[in-house]
Design a protein around this nucleic acid. Sequence first.
DNA 1: TTTTTAACTTACATTTCGTAACTTAGTTTA
DNA 2: TAAACTAAGTTACGAAATGTAAGTTAAAAA
Lengths: 105, 105
Amino acid sequence: MDQKKICPRFEKALKILNHSWNTLLIYQLLEGPQRYSTIKNQVGISSRVLTERLKELEIENIVERTVIPSTPVVIEYKLTEKGHALAPVLKAIEQWSSMWVNIEE
Amino acid sequence: MDQKKICPRFEKALKILNHSWNTLLIYQLLEGPQRYSTIKNQVGISSRVLTERLKELEIENIVERTVIPSTPVVIEYKLTEKGHALAPVLKAIEQWSSMWVNIEE
DNA sequence: TTTTTAACTTACATTTCGTAACTTAGTTTA
DNA sequence: TAAACTAAGTTACGAAATGTAAGTTAAAAA
C-alpha cells in the first residue's frame, strides 16, 4: 500500500540541500574561500543562522573551517572536494532558471 | 562594500527549490501524473503542507492540477514542461548523492 | 440510513527563523 | 591608562513556518 522506494542517500542529499540557505551558501563558496563576515554580507543571512548552517555543512564535510591567526583572528570557510562536487547541481539550477524563471509582478 | 551580484532568476529558482518538500515533490512527480493521496503516502508529507506546496508549484507553473470527475472526484497532479525541465537538476543531485553521501550513524 | 472515499481545512502545539543586542580577546587610539 | 575597534560568534525573544490530529464536503455504495 505504502512503499517508500526513495534512495536514502538521495533523500539525505535533498535534506541537506533543501535546508534553507545551504544551497546559496555553497553557491557563494564556489567563488572561492571566504571569511564569515564576507559570506554574511554577500548572502544577506543573519549571523545566528549562518553559524548554524556553516556548522551543519562542516559536519557534512561539505565545508571546511580554518582559523587564520591574524589579529584580530580571521576564520576562512571553503568548500571541500565533496562540496565542490556540487557545482554541477548549481549549474543545472542556473541553467533551468535562465531558461524558465521570469521575474515580474 | 556590500554587493549582491546574484542573478534574480537564479535566486528565485533557489527560493522555489529550497522551499521544504518542493524538490522531493517534483522528484516524485517525475515518475508520472499522480493523485493527491498517492503523493501524500509516497512522500510522507502532511496534508496541510502538501496542499500548500502544490498550490505554490501550480502558481509557479511547475505543476498542473486536473480534476477527474469520477466518483468520488479524483485530482491529478502532473509536471508541466517547466517542471519536467527540472529533471537534470534532480539527476545531478542523484549523481552527487550516489558519489558522496553515505549514511551511517 | 449509515458508512466510505478523496481532497482538502482548521485549530493548536512545536520548531525554526529573523532581529538586535551582547560577548570575547587582543589592539590600536586618545 | 582607559576607551574604542574588530571578527566571529552567542543569546534572548517575538514572529513565522511546520507537524499533528481531527473535522469538512459531496456523492455513492452498503
